[in-house]
Amino acid sequence: MESLQPPSSSSVVSSSNSNALTDSGQRNWLDLPRDAILSIFVKLDTVDLLVRAHNVCTTWRNISKDPFLYRTIDMSNLDELETSFELMKTNSQLEILCHRAIDYSRGHAIDINIEYFGTDDLLSHIADSASHLRCLRLACCYSVTHEGLCVIAEKLSHLEELDITISGGLTHDSLEVIGRSSPQLKTFKFNIEVYLHPHIVYDDDAFAIAKFMPGLCHLQLIGNKMSNDGLLAILDGCPQLESLDIRQCFNINFIGSLAKRCKEQIKYLLLPNDDTDDYPFETEDYPEDYPYGISDIDLDLLSEDDYELSDGSEFSEFEFDGNYYDF
């Protein structure tokens, strides 16, 4: 958070009388310089700004509309609201508030974080109003569709960071649109529900990322169904990749030359069965019937010859001869 412009010392000294103690010994908070109030308001999250600071009095309402306060619009972690109120009604209220925050930002919003209540309509408003947006997070926004995302992606060419964690209607086609429209994209997160179709191999997301997001430095794909082919494509397609999070990607057989290459190319690597405590959404324990439980093994110990698993897992034949299990 950038620090506020301090009031010039001369103006503080000269305005000192207005802050003097009153006869009753109380000071009037409304006499505070706007910058001082802003220094408090900037510490409030977006919802507190819009429903509390905004509604205290006319002076505060005016200050609470300062675009400076809406460069970051964070409307995440509203779990308490989720449980306390009727969900749909709350979500539509939150959407109204988010609309308002975007209006107050007067085009200066650079970071928007939305959980649950995002819709195509809201995205469209963001696209029209926040042309400098650099960072967007849409978590669990099930109402956002591929078409809605196309609209926002085309207008947000400054986007450097996009997090779509658990979406309803987005596909690998969406990833192509994002990649084509946002050439500056450096960080991409596309996490999905881990428990859906656990054994189906699906590499199209990975292929789309490899093909259309070549400039990525940071990639998180928790729960993705890609296989080794998908991972290899990403390593080939995104040469600048520094960090890669493939936790819960249980279709990846992380051994042999692929593991070695990953380790060489990627600085910060999180593997399929690494700990997910920092991830706020549902994950699975390492599946019992899953054959590739070796990512805890020191990669240095692995070579191409080691890939035949000692437990003689029945799954290995589907993976290692290059033919994937046909569903």
């Binding site: 009037n28 908070w29 408090i40 507190d48 429903v51 509390r52 205290v56 009095c57 505060w60």
Partner: peptide, 15 residues
């Protein structure tokens, strides 16, 4: 201020 009622905030600040 965070997550308090508007009335509380007014009282706290004497507004």
């Amino acid at each position: 201020i965070a997550n308090k009622s508007v009335e509380y905030v007014r009282r706290y600040f004497g507004i």
